[in-house]
């Protein structure tokens, strides 16, 4: 069986005025179903570019990205929207809930775009919110919740669509360490239940919670291996050429 996520020499360039910025420089890796992978790197390492490409929000300038065996590079905007809806569940640093909608409605949004009937949507959203322990607050607005609770709603929203990949972008960045740990343990539970989780972070202490770490620097992979290996978090710095973009 082929890998769920496969990067083959993925490059991404941005035009910044007269100069071309290399944000991803021939990145290659594979992620199998059921893995819990952290993509880690400092600001400008290219991890955000990686996350945008994995999340089908952007396409590579060069190289090939296969998601579930499908080549994302040649897709148009509508096909990208469809594949995001079908295969990906996003968890953002800023939660990104819709403030005017209540929790149920927020969780229902991706299901609505998937064309799922009203009653089934309701059922699945309730189940997802139950899974993250918010079954008591279905009709609350996001602003009535704490940060940790809001992040749990966004996890529920990512889960409701039963995606192939759960993509978490600095999910603990806006939380204090205690609620951050709660969110991380929730991600570990999801992994234990068989989900593929990709965690994007700059924080080594969070990255080590994953099974495997892919470390990026200046748009290149400098480490790809288990998170408990001695050089997983401390990598000798390689002299980089060119700048990186966030």
């Amino acid at each position: 069986m082929s890998a769920l996520i496969e990067f083959q020499n993925v490059c991404k360039y941005y035009e910044m005025g007269d100069t071309t910025v290399v944000a991803a420089d021939h990145i290659s890796f594979q992620i199998q179903r059921g893995e819990f992978v952290a993509i880690v790197g400092s600001s400008g390492s290219g991890k955000s570019t990686c996350m945008n490409i994995i999340g089908c929000l952007d396409v590579p300038s060069e190289g090939t990205y296969l998601l579930d065996g499908r080549d994302v590079g040649g897709m148009n905007k509508n096909e990208l929207a469809e594949i995001r809806n079908e295969l990906l569940g996003f968890i953002f640093q800023q939660y990104n809930l819709l403030p005017k909608l209540n929790l149920l409605e927020n969780v229902e949004v991706p299901l609505m775009y998937a064309g799922i009937s009203r009653s089934e949507r309701r059922e699945r959203a309730e189940a997802a919110l139950g899974m993250v322990g918010l079954e008591e607050k279905l009709k609350h607005k996001p602003s009535q919740l704490s940060g940790g609770q809001q992040q749990r709603v966004s996890i529920a929203r990512a889960l409701a669509g039963e995606p192939a990949v759960i993509l978490a972008d600095e999910p603990t960045g806006a939380l204090d360490s205690r609620t951050g740990r709660e969110v991380l343990s929730l991600l570990q539970q999801l992994h234990a239940a068989g989900n593929t989780v990709v965690l994007i972070t700059h924080d080594n202490t969070i990255a080590v919670q994953a099974q495997r770490i892919i470390r990026l620097e200046d748009g290149r992979v400098v480490y790809d291996g288990p998170s408990d290996a001695p050089d997983a978090v401390v990598t000798p710095r390689v002299a980089g050429t060119g700048g990186g973009a966030a």
Partner: peptide, 16 residues
């Protein structure tokens, strides 16, 4: 704009 971004990331096509 942010709402539109969220909706798009959740799979809203341009048409929607």
């Amino acid at each position: 704009t942010r709402e539109i971004g969220i909706r798009k990331s959740l799979g809203a096509k341009e048409r929607y």
